[in-house]
Design a protein around this nucleic acid. Sequence first.
DNA 1: GGGGTGTCGATTTTT
DNA 2: TCGACACCCC
Length: 668
Amino acid sequence: MSFSFALLNLQQRDAVQTIHGPVLILAGAGTGKTRVITMRIANMVDQGISPENIVSVTFTNKAASEMRERITEILGKEKAKKLTLGTFHAFCMRLLRQHAEALGYKNNFTIYSQGEQISLVKKILARLLVKEENYDPSMALSRISKAKNAGESLGDPMQTVDGALQQLYTDELRAMNAMDFDDLLLNGVKLLEDHPEVREAVQGKLRYVMVDEFQDTNTLQMRLLRALVPPPHNICVVGDDDQSIYGWRGADITNINEYESFFPDPKIIKLEENYRSTTPILHTANSLIRNNVGRRDKSLWSRNAGQDPVRLVVTEDEKEEAALIADEMTDAQTKGEKWDDMAVLFRTNEQSRVLEGEFRKRKIPYRIIGARSFFDRREVKDILAYLTVLANPDDDVSLQRILNTPTRGIGAATAELAREHSIKKRTSVFAALKDPEFLENISQRLQVVINGFVETMESFRGQAHQPLQPLQPLAEKFIAEIRYMEYLEKQAKTPEDFETWKNGVKMLMQSLTGYDERAKGEGLQGFLDETSLNDDREEKEDITKKTGVCLITLHASKGLEFPYVWLPGMEEGILPHKRSIDENRKDEERRLFYVGITRAMRKLTISHCRYRVKWGQKQTCMASSFLQELDRQYVEEFDHAAYMNEDLDKDDATDFMAAMRRQLMSEA
DNA sequence: GGGGTGTCGATTTTT
DNA sequence: TCGACACCCC
Ligand SMILES: Nc1ncnc2c1ncn2[C@@H]1O[C@H](COP(=O)(O)OP(=O)(O)OP(=O)(O)O)[C@@H](O)[C@H]1O
């Protein structure tokens, strides 16, 4: 046997040894659910099941690669490599890359993430009507997404804006051979539900299914599982209803209840011992989550009494809060703790700015997890748009982004002409650019420019499709060819701007190099898939690998653990967030807080400010209403602002005494 | 068509 | 405070 049951308690062992039939593991935070999945996979392989027949779905790609790492340690690389591990979206994406044609797409479809979705919606809205004020594109998008998930329509396209928008959005995506994140699931489901030959092939291969973080699955994902798993229902799901924090994205806790109706008579396993946190931390977490109505109570305990109470600190403002955290970290580090073992968890990405500033100032090494901000940088978006068009020339949105970047004289008017022509001819915009009938109607000068652009694109498209072509050198050559760096230099208002952009390009090149070295033979398409699905494997190679304290949102922290945790900004309006209060979703915010608390292993510090600068304006902050729900048995409260003031007074006093002394001395 | 300036408005969370 | 976008001049 390649692993030891000694690492598991009785209930965990039960779960690990029940290989056939449905299994439902419902258990609180830190009870070893993820460990059970990992060990269960190892045990199955030990029992002679081939790793190719096992699929395990995780919530993030990061969680997937961590799981693969752990399994590699137990089973070795050869076997671990053969497992199917990833998110629902990644799973569907791979399926669709093979079978998209069955659904009328081409296999080189583009995956649209939020930025591209929004720019498409904006464009449709602008064209569609109207400048209806307060028609928020991202709100519209989330309505579309909800409707898609529920399989509904937003109303008659002739009657409502939403209806028209949804139809145009859907049609245009399809015309561009593009799918958004919901389409990946939707089309994955279609493939399995409506195409028996595909379904049977997949079912024949993936005979054992496991799902982590089941409480955050949505309707489409549940449908996918039903289509994927035939009787005798070899499906094991694990989850914790108290940690469901993605309701805003369509996650549906009722999936837990419905599980039993789709996969009858499951073995139900409860885990109650928490191996992660000390009693003070766990007790505090329990006292909070009890306030959610309609929740099923569960017991959760730890045999680790711990050394430290949970601390609840109030500071004057967000700068003082950041300084306090930095102080405490430095202190702990001096006493021998590792930076890697410390983390700050916050509600909104924006909160990390103050912390970053403070850490930089004090030279505390830090890493920011999850933030996609790198891919939102203009220089990165530009180059990715180029690469995207090379992979899928039908992608009009990406094409529009690059058509005049760098400036080459193809302005908005020409782009609109091309678009109109493409509609008339029912082709893509790129095809329109090549059409002699289109070129006829524009100036000589423009014809030359457009021909040049098309030629460059097609030449590089050919090269990118050479088998085993390394991407980084090709991209480098391409950037030189279109004179992109020269363009950036010209655009930059200050030399620093240019430096920053140059650096962005360089980092993108590094991730291409990383991809080339991993040589998976999936070419340009593979690279783009990884970036749009937020697969951070390549990041691991350079950015994240650096050690340092961890800055991360509460949402992204799910499933992780740290010996030292700080939860700053616990104020009404931040957690619970204002929008959530308005939309009556405080319960989910409470769960978010619960997730945050239960990430801590040994030491937890919760803090809030009296004032906070927002949009350059000092604002009074109220402590989060959740704080009064925390049982104080193990909580130590501390008014840091008052302490600082005292300190000031003390300084004043010493100064005063010194002045007195000086005066007395000089008089004497 | 390109580039500069000024005003207004906005911040939740992510596959 | 910062970025998106509208508007204006070259
Ligand atoms: N039987 C056990 N004995 C000792 N330690 C364990 C045992 N089971 C799990 N652990 C440890 O407890 C910690 C939490 O485990 P794990 O991450 O699997 O929990 P989880 O239930 O997935 O948590 P969460 O739902 O909060 O993400 C890990 O550090 C793990 O190594």
